[in-house]
């Protein structure tokens, strides 16, 4: 078990390092960042000043190591646009985004797990058809459009929920639905497919041959095996959701890290952008690592692997 965790940890660290290089390098891929910052019309002198001010005149590896060293300590430099420490801006808003992400994944799991299990027990039943229909329709609705439709219905026409802002818990209801429904179809399909697969397996037949009650066969023997791939997917989806929060938070003007990402990208605020890409990636890496550990606990075969 310890060996398994250590191996996964090293893998995660290597991925994290590579991601950090990419998020740092992104800024240089489009050309000289000093020119990008100074603007198209800037004179050579202005560009030179910016280059020195931000340290762009140093060799790129030195800049990277410097940036990474500070980033590890939670310091992402000063925002080019807002002129504030990037970390202050991000960490004051991250809470909103993480709350939204957790609400959304819970929402998605609460819908997809029961529906996936029930439709697997009775394939081709009415419930199964409904579930598959919801999945197919859900996958085709663009989330920003869905968000706008909800605003039209619940805020404008019915006046039940606030259309924007992040002042009260009501502000989180629509964003949770929009972000959560996005992960629901995939989770539901996987639960259903995994469950169907497990229910036709030899060990379920053994369990039935033992004379166990159907409820026990289902909950003790089938669910645990079927849920293992779902855990991995949920972690991946959780990571995607933080990325997806950009769209959702922008639609609902929810002042989280996603909204900040949109603002900073629109305003060419390179340092904030870099930091956010890195932080969102780290969340993904941590989630998938935790999912690996959880799965190792669920499935003893993984522990010795």
């Amino acid at each position: 078990m310890v060996r398994f965790i250590l191996t996964k940890l090293v893998m995660a660290a290597m991925v994290a390092l590579t991601v950090s290089i990419i998020s740092f390098g992104l800024v240089y891929m489009a050309g000289d960042p000093a020119i990008a910052l100074a603007g198209e019309t800037a004179t050579d002198e202005e560009i030179a000043v910016i280059r020195e001010q931000y340290g762009f005149d140093r060799p790129i590896p030195v800049q990277y190591l410097d940036w990474l060293g500070s980033a590890v300590r939670g310091d992402f430099g000063i925002s080019y646009y807002y002129n504030m420490p990037v970390s202050d801006m991000i960490f004051s808003r991250l809470g909103t985004t993480v709350t939204l992400g957790l609400c959304a994944i819970s929402f998605a799991l609460l819908i997809s797990l029961p529906m996936g299990v029930l439709s697997a027990i009775k394939p081709n039943s009415l419930l199964d058809r409904v579930a598959v229909f919801i999945a197919v329709v859900g996958e085709a609705i663009p989330s920003f459009w869905f968000g706008l439709l909800l605003i039209v219905l619940f805020s404008i026409n019915l006046g039940w929920l606030p259309a924007s802002g992040s002042d009260s818990w009501q502000s989180f209801i629509m964003p949770t639905i929009v972000l959560g429904y996005y992960a629901t179809p995939a989770l539901m399909r996987l639960t259903r497919a995994g469950m169907i697969d497990v229910l036709s397996s030899d060990y379920i037949r053994t369990a039935k041959a033992k004379g166990l009650r159907p409820r026990k066969v289902l909950f003790k023997h089938a669910l645990r095996n079927a849920v293992i791939p779902v855990v991995s997917l949920a972690a991946v989806q959780m990571g995607f959701m933080l990325g997806g929060s950009i769209v959702t938070e922008t639609v609902f003007a929810l002042h989280g890290a996603g909204f900040l990402a949109w603002q900073s990208i629109s305003r060419n605020d390179l340092s904030t952008m870099q930091a956010l890409i890195l932080i969102f990636s780290m969340f993904y890496i941590v989630f998938t690592f935790l999912a690996d550990v959880l799965n190792a606990w669920l499935d003893p075969r993984l522990r010795s692997g």
Partner: peptide, 14 residues
């Protein structure tokens, strides 16, 4: 009671 053909998959791995 019944005994099956495939011992490798007849027991729950968990």
């Amino acid at each position: 009671a019944m005994i099956f053909q495939e011992p490798m998959s007849a027991l729950n791995p968990c």
